[in-house]
């Protein structure tokens, strides 16, 4: 029974991280119709930067003690850095390609992925980087006869907060209205006086921020290693395909489905755990190409 509860908590933890990544991917696709193959690499870079900032701050802090609050405040800086990087990438690499076919979007983001993978190797070397100090200081709570890290529950809370925040942002603010209008009809939005180029930069930066935030929250629990982003991108794809490309609710439900299936898979059928996920994605694409929540 305790194991069961812990597995459910684990599923929620994975779902929170996957949601952050997939929501960014979905937002970028929804607004600018670009499938960003470098999204996983941005997530990994966010993890590296956050771990590096927290690590060096702890090293330089007086008496080597930064306090939990200090470290938690520094953690999202990685996500901010990734958002800034995104605001740089969109006008330089993506904007010239909107008029061209999708093949080129995939190719340029694949090129970006190759570049980012090596930039991480160049900047941070081959040693895994982690912000484990945060996880240690947060301690753990008892679950039945066992204990569970408090930090994992904090990540779930961040995921929930991000989902609510993003929903409120897109459906309850003026910028959200502009974003949705641009996503539905770019030319009409431009005709109404919206600066579409600026909306695109903002949307891409927000999407990148979500990827970076995913990396930032995961790095105290799980070290940043090379190749982290390549693996996670495919899982994020599975999430958005199940939920529907471009849909926020879809990313949430998809992330929950993928995490629970994966946790159950690791427990009961470890050999085909990943294969099952990819097959579910393929099956959803066949039966309902737009996903559970997507529009045509």
């Amino acid at each position: 029974m305790t194991i069961f509860v812990i597995q459910i908590l684990n599923s929620f933890f994975y779902a929170a991280v996957l949601f952050l990544i997939a929501a960014g991917l979905s937002l970028i696709y929804g607004v600018m119709r670009i499938v960003n193959l470098a999204h996983g690499a941005l997530y990994a870079l966010g993890a590296y930067i956050s771990a590096w900032i927290v690590g060096s701050a702890v090293g330089h802090a007086l008496e080597g003690n930064l306090g939990l609050a200090g470290m938690l405040l520094l953690l999202p800086l990685g996500a901010v850095a990734i958002a800034a990087l995104g605001a740089l990438i969109e006008p330089t690499l993506l904007r010239p390609l909107y008029q061209r076919s999708e093949e080129y979007h995939l190719l340029v983001t694949f090129g970006l992925l190759l570049i980012l993978e090596d930039v991480m190797k160049l900047l941070f070397g081959r040693t895994p980087l982690s912000a484990g100090a945060i996880m240690d200081q947060m301690g753990s709570i008892p679950v039945g006869r066992l204990i569970y890290p408090t930090y994992n529950l904090f990540v779930v809370a961040v995921g929930v907060a991000a989902a609510i925040g993003l929903w409120a942002f897109i459906y309850r603010t003026k910028f959200g209205v502009i974003l949705r209008a641009t996503s539905q009809d770019r030319r009409m939005a431009a005709a109404l006086g919206i600066n579409v180029s600026r909306v695109y930069v903002q949307a891409f930066a927000i999407g990148c921020f979500m990827a970076g935030l995913g990396g930032a929250v995961v790095v105290p629990a799980q070290a940043a290693v090379l190749g982290l982003g390549i693996e996670v991108l495919i899982l994020a794809f599975v999430v958005v395909v199940i939920g529907g490309l471009g849909s926020l609710q879809g990313a949430l439900v998809g992330a929950l489905i993928v995490s629970f299936v994966r946790t159950a898979g690791i427990q009961f059928f470890p050999e085909i755990e990943l294969a099952v996920l990819y097959l579910i994605a393929a099956a959803v694409l066949l039966v309902r190409p737009t996903g559970l929540f997507g529009r045509a």
Partner: peptide, 25 residues
């Protein structure tokens, strides 16, 4: 059954089925 971006994602997902099988078995 699909074209454009969905075709790309579908081929990607199915190829990863083979990868995960080769990786796990």
């Amino acid at each position: 059954r699909h074209t454009r971006i969905f075709f790309g994602i579908l081929t990607l997902a199915l190829s990863q089925v083979l990868w995960s099988l080769a990786f796990k078995f």
